[in-house]
Design a protein around this nucleic acid. Structure first.
Lengths: 200, 200, 200, 200
DNA sequence: TATGAATGAGAGTTCATTCAT
DNA sequence: AATGAATGAACTCTCATTCAT
C-alpha cells in the first residue's frame, strides 16, 4: 500500500517534470533558448511560475535536462531500427529513414537539437555532443565498421566516416520544413552517401 | 580636390560603419544574436554606445546588415574560385575547397552564418536564404547543370541536387573547430559527393 | 473563513495596485506624464522598480488606469452633492462648490486632469473625455435640462450649454493654486454662470 | 552700403531664427515639449541638427523664445481689435471674437499656449503668465474697469473679474477642434459673460 | 508541492548637446 | 553660420530567480 502510494506520488512528480520538459521543448523550439520564457513554459505546462524551480535549479539546467531527454529518445529510436537488419547497406538506409522519421515525429526536439548543435552556447553544444556519443558509435561500429569489414565499403577510417555520415544527417536535418520533411528525400540522401561509400 | 575630400568623408563614414559591423560580427559569433550586447559592440569598435544608432536603427537591423555583408563576401569569394576552372569536377572540388577556405579565413562570419541558418529566428533565416540565392544558382547551374549536360554526372535534377550539395557544405561548415577546420578534409567531402554524383 | 482569506489576499493585491496608482498620481501631477519616472513611482510606493510591471503592462497603461480611477472618483463625489438638492439653481451652485471641493481635496488628481485635458496626447485626452461622459450628462440633464423645463433658465440647448458649464468649471479648475483654491471663489463662478443662464 | 549689407545679414539671421521658431511651434504643438525633437525641428526648418544651437542655447531656451513670440503676437492682435471700439460691451465682444479669430489663425500657437498654461512645467507656466500680463491689464482696465466706471457692469473688482474673463477665454480656447473652432461660438461665450457682468 | 508577488540586474533605445570641420 | 558624427545620461521594459505562504 505504502509502496503503491509512493509510486503514485513519484508518478505525479515525474508527470509534472515531464509536462514541464515538454512545454520547455515547445518554447525553446519556437523562440530559442534565450527568448524562451520560464513563466510561459510553466504556464503552458499548467503550473505557476515558481513551480519550475522545484524541478530545475536554473533555466540552463532545464535546458540540459531537455537535451538529455531527447537525445536518449532519439538514439533509442534510431538504434532500434538500425539493429533490426544485418547488412550494412540496409542499416545505412534504415539509419537515414529512421532518422528523418524521428525528426518528423519529434519536430520540436529536432529543432532544438539543430539549433543547439549550431548555436553559440558552448556548454550546451558540448553537452549535446557528449549525449550523442552512442549514436556516433552506432554509426561507426554497426554500420561503417561492419561495411568495411565485409568489404562492401571503400577502405576508410570508421570514426571520421561516421562523423561524415552524422554530419550529413544533421545537415539535412536542419533543412526540414514545418511538416518535418527535409529538402531531399531520406532515401536519396542515403543513396548519395552509399554511392560515396561503396566500392565500385 | 573636392572629389578627393568627398571621398575621404564618405570613407570615414563607411569606416565607422564597417568597424561596427566587424565588432558586431565578433560579438554575435561568440555570444549569438540574443546575448550580443549593443554597448559592448560599440565599445569594442571604439565608440560610445549611442554611436551604433547613427548607423543602424535597431539591433535587428544591424544583424540584417551584417548578414548582407558576409553573404556577399562569401558568394564572391567562392564564385571567383569556381569560375576559374571549366570542368564540373574541378569546379565541385574548388567549390568545397574555396568554401572551407573562406570559412577558415572568416571564422566569425562562418559561425554567424551557421547559427543563423539553424537558429529559431525566422526573419533572419529567410533573409539569409534570400541572400544565398546566388550561391544556390551558382552550384545548380555552373556545377551540377554543367556536369549533367556533359554527361559526367548521373541524371539528376539540378535544383534539388544543388540543394543537397549546399546542405552538405553547410552541414560540414557547422563542424569547424576553433581554427576553422571542418571535421573532415574538404577534399574528402568533395570526394564523397563526387562519388555520389558521378556516373560509374 | 475562506471567503475572508480570499478577501484578504485580494485586498493585498489591490493595496499594492492602489499604492502604485497613488504614487503615480503624485509623480505625474508634479512632473507630467513624460517626465514621470517609472522607477521613482515604484520606489515612492515602497516597491522595487520591476513591481509596477506586475500590475500595469506599460507606463501608458498605468496612466490610463490612473485616469479611470480619478474620473470615477471625481464624478461620484460631484454627482452625490448635486443630487442632494432638487432645484436647478442649488444644483448648479452645488456643482461648482463640490467641484472645487473635490479639486481641493484631490489636488494631484486635479492637476493630472487639467494637464491631460489640455496636453498634446490625443489618446489620453480621448480616454479622459470618454471617462467624463457621465459628468457631462449629469450637468446636461440634471441641471441645465431641469432648469429649462422648469422655465428658470433661458431657452438654450442643454447639451452645448452643459459643455459651456463644464468648460468654465475646468477652465477655473486649471487656475487653482498650491492649496487648491481657484483664482475666483466657486460661489462667484456659480454666480456668474447663473447670471448668464437665468431668465431675467 | 555697409549698413545695408549688415541689415541683410541680420535679416538672414533672423530668417533662420524665425524658421526654427516656426518649426519648433509645429513640433511642440503636435507632440508637446518633452517629446518635441530638436533634430526634427531643425530638419523641418531646413537645417541640420547643430544649427539650432547657434540660435538657442538649450531646448528650454527655444521654448521660452517661442512663448515670447506668440504671446506678443497674440496680445497685439487682440488689443488692436479691442481698442477699435469704445463701449465696454463691444470691447468685450471684440475681445472674444478676436481672441478666437487669433486662435483659429494660429492654431499651433494656441495649442502650445493652452498646453503650457495647464502643463506641469512651472518655469514655462510662470514665463507665460508674465508674458500675458499686458493682456490681463487690457481686460481689467480697458474693458471691465471701463464698464464699471460707466455704470454698465455690476460693481465688481476689475482685477479678479478680468481674471475670470481671461480664464473663461482660455478655458474655451482649450476646446478648439482641428479647424480652430471652440465648442461654443465666441458670440455665445461673450453673451454668457455679458449676462454675468451686466447690471439688470 | 505549488504558488505568485516582489525583486533588480541588465538590455535596447532615445536624444539633447558638443565640437571639430 | 552651418554641419553632422559622436557622446552618454537617462529611461522603459524584461524576466530569471527568490521566498513566504
Amino acid at each position: 500500500m505504502v509502496r503503491h502510494k509512493e509510486k503514485d506520488k513519484q508518478g505525479i512528480i515525474s508527470d509534472t517534470r515531464q509536462k514541464l520538459l515538454t512545454a520547455a521543448t515547445q518554447e525553446v523550439a519556437r523562440y530559442g533558448f534565450e527568448r524562451a520564457n520560464i513563466n510561459q513554459i510553466s504556464a503552458s505546462a499548467g503550473y505557476a511560475k515558481g513551480t519550475i524551480y522545484n524541478y530545475f535549479p536554473t533555466k540552463r539546467a532545464l535546458m540540459l535536462a531537455l537535451i538529455d531527454e531527447f537525445t536518449k529518445n532519439h538514439f533509442e529510436f534510431i538504434a532500434d531500427k538500425v539493429i533490426q537488419v544485418n547488412d550494412p547497406i540496409s542499416r545505412l538506409k534504415n539509419f537515414f529513414v529512421a532518422g528523418f522519421e524521428w525528426i518528423e515525429e519529434n519536430l520540436q526536439q529536432g529543432r532544438v537539437m539543430v539549433a543547439t548543435l549550431n548555436g553559440p552556447d558552448v556548454e550546451f553544444k558540448e553537452h549535446l555532443y557528449a549525449a550523442y556519443q552512442p549514436m556516433f558509435e552506432l554509426v561507426g561500429i554497426e554500420i561503417i565498421g561492419l561495411g568495411i569489414s565485409q568489404g562492401l565499403f571503400r577502405g576508410m577510417e570508421p570514426g571520421p566516416t561516421a562523423g561524415m555520415v552524422m554530419t550529413i544527417y544533421l545537415g539535412f536535418g536542419s533543412t526540414v520544413d514545418d511538416r518535418g520533411h527535409p529538402n531531399v528525400a531520406p532515401e536519396k540522401i542515403a543513396d548519395l552517401v552509399l554511392h560515396g561509400l561503396i566500392k565500385v
